[in-house]
Design a protein around this nucleic acid. Structure first.
Lengths: 371, 371
DNA sequence: CATCAAGCAACAAACGTTTTTAGTTAATTT
DNA sequence: AAATTAACTAAAAACGTTTGTTGCTTGATG
């Protein structure tokens, strides 16, 4: 890697251009209804009626104009905090995801954001980093902010951490992972079992009998379904389960690299690697390219997840798309249903279907086997 | 593409599991200080003192305990909106970025989030989609929410849209793009000129004389510096500027594809393509691979920006890293400086250096030329 | 000329906190 | 025994809204 930091000098003229002139009024404070009222020669109540365009109230055109002028002149902007005290909606949604660097989750944010914005809601987006402590602290702050609802992909301690949320009755939709031990909650789930099954089934269908599976030892029950599904697919396809070699570890590209190397040395006879998590796949494939292992000639590769890179540039990996965007959309709509409906909305579990996207990273070795 | 949606049936048992049992209390409302006080046999003021652990107030251990017990029993959580009315900080930061799908901006969010969280601030993250109307609406909502400060990558109408922000004196740090016409503001800028220069210089240094430049006709003045720098580099390197072929269009992968195709047909003699924007590069490179143009044998490629895919899988593109993470960090710190400092902080412009990362997508054709 | 709407605007109470002020005990010092 | 202090608690006002109620003008109707 060649670093050039030389070109910054083009701008060094104003690298730090201090302002010496006086600022108008540093401690400026927001205008209140009362301020506007005083300027318009009326009362705060009237101003409120005018600004909120309440129908059924009689306001003369003259005062209306005076109020609007005064509001504009004073740069009045209503304080949401104060009006929410009076029972108004905050128009705020909290969304907690465990990994920002994972495109699976940012896509969920993107697609749900679009829906919330359309309904006039702002989003408080937080990164729990998969840390239960952080999750707990953030959830508490969400209640403090009195958000109208939250979307949550829980950590391992999600059940315990959401206890207060559930007790105070805050609207919530759980995404992707479950809340073990909780009977009733809104859930938009990934079909983890399906992802594992469809990917494994495809590999076996293409003749692979010795398959390495790289996964995350997360202790999150639903995620384990990916690995379990691989074995189920083997049994269903009449493939010897002895041929499935599992290597599980931490959730990072580095771990993916390590696990791949481990698989290659422990089981040199595998013809395919199935990556259950795309973050690990990134490192794993780096391991393969570094060792000049050609995909798919020397080794076939299958990935669960669809980050941009699987089909970018020279890449064209066969992978299982979890339909992340759809997941986010459904979660947002489910939450809005709860928030906007006056009466009780029944709990729902929605399972998002997955899609196998065929690329060129899996070799058909049925013929090779027949020889 | 092969679609399999068959595996959803594994879960269809609880695809929509309705809850028929009664919910405890659907209209549950949050406990207030007064509620806690009543239960503890004291007043709201005392409860406030206990919960805020104000020093200098004498509270008996006995009442303290009674208050804490009552608070716990009632699931009391303070309402931030109400306390902010009394002049307390909201502990909220607004952050407006124009593109969620661009990793350049999500990285800015990630790195600044880490810093804000460390200081106890929550983030309201919004996607302006580069739409001035949306930007204006969102900025207005930020004032309504009375956030403590905002981080903004402005649209083309940023100057106009931030007028109110600047007038009410809300703390703000502008990132990446400038606020044309505004004299004093906090700015953490990308070294756009430097990015263009260093990338172009490298290509010319490797012997390229006919270079296609693919860019975004954004009307954002600072971004044009990338193109301008290419010409400046040519002049400085004694390269005929006639050899630089510019193709500019919309900001999308599709446009990148189109512009690349256009370049290839209009200027078949180019030996390298310089992509000024990674989103366009994604589509552009798709165009090259589809036509079986080998990189770098047939054509060299240089990219500004460092999305994951430029170095993922089989890819190893030479590119200019804008040090996005550093950008976000600096912006966050600059904003916190303003918020936390009692006295006036002088305006600052910070230019973030860029880094050229050498991959294998640029061919050295100096020898080829000499023949 | 009395009655009554219609049109308009002010008043005041409330939301859930924080903080200042004032007050009440009980213990300690003169 | 009186005065002082320490330890504690209550009362009340304020923050910026929203909204129900009341009250005051008009002009039209009986």
């Amino acid at each position: 890697m060649l670093c050039m930091q030389t070109f910054a000098y083009f701008f060094c003229g104003y690298r730090q251009s201090f302002a010496y002139h006086e600022k108008e009024s540093s401690l400026k404070t927001y205008a209140t209804l009362k301020d506007v009222a005083k300027r318009a020669g009326t009362t705060a109540a009237t101003v409120s009626y005018v600004l909120n365009e309440k129908e059924g109230r009689y306001i003369s055109e003259e005062t209306k104009k005076k109020v609007l002028d005064a509001a504009r002149e004073l740069d009045y902007v209503k304080c949401n905090g104060a009006s929410s005290l009076k029972g108004k909606k905050r128009k705020l949604i909290g969304i907690l995801i465990p990994q920002f660097e994972n495109q699976f989750f940012t896509r969920i944010v993107i697609s749900s954001e679009a829906i919330f914005v359309k309904h006039g809601y702002d989003l408080i987006i937080c990164n729990t980093l998969d840390s239960p402590e952080r999750e707990k602290a953030i959830l508490n702050r969400m209640i403090q902010q009195r958000v109208d609802g939250i979307i949550l992909t829980p950590t391992t301690e999600g059940t315990q951490n959401t206890e207060l949320i559930r007790r105070v009755g805050m609207k919530m939709v759980v995404v992707d992972r479950p809340l073990p031990g909780v009977k009733d909650f809104f859930w938009v789930a990934t079909n983890n079992y399906g992802c594992g099954y469809v990917g494994a089934h495809y590999l076996m269908h293409k003749g692979h009998r010795k398959i390495g599976y790289v996964g995350w030892n997360s202790k999150i029950p639903d995620l384990e379904a990916r690995r379990e599904a691989v074995f189920a697919a083997a049994e269903d396809s009449g493939v010897d389960v002895q041929g499935i070699c599992v290597a599980e570890g931490g959730f990072s590209a580095e771990e993916g690299y390590r696990l791949t190397a481990q698989l290659l040395s422990d089981h040199p006879d595998i013809t395919a690697i199935f990556y259950g998590f795309n973050i690990q796949a990134l490192g794993g494939i780096k391991c393969l390219t570094e060792r000049n292992i050609s995909i798919p000639e020397d080794l076939s590769v299958m990935i669960i997840g669809s980050p941009e890179w699987v089909r970018a540039g020279k890449n064209d990996f066969t992978h299982v798309d979890m339909n992340d965007l759809e997941l986010g959309k459904k979660a947002a709509n489910l939450l809005l249903d709860q928030i906007q409906s006056d009466d009780e909305v029944p709990y729902q579990h929605i399972i998002q279907d997955c899609t196998l996207v065929e690329g060129s990273s899996v070799c058909d070795i049925t013929k090779r086997r027949e020889k």
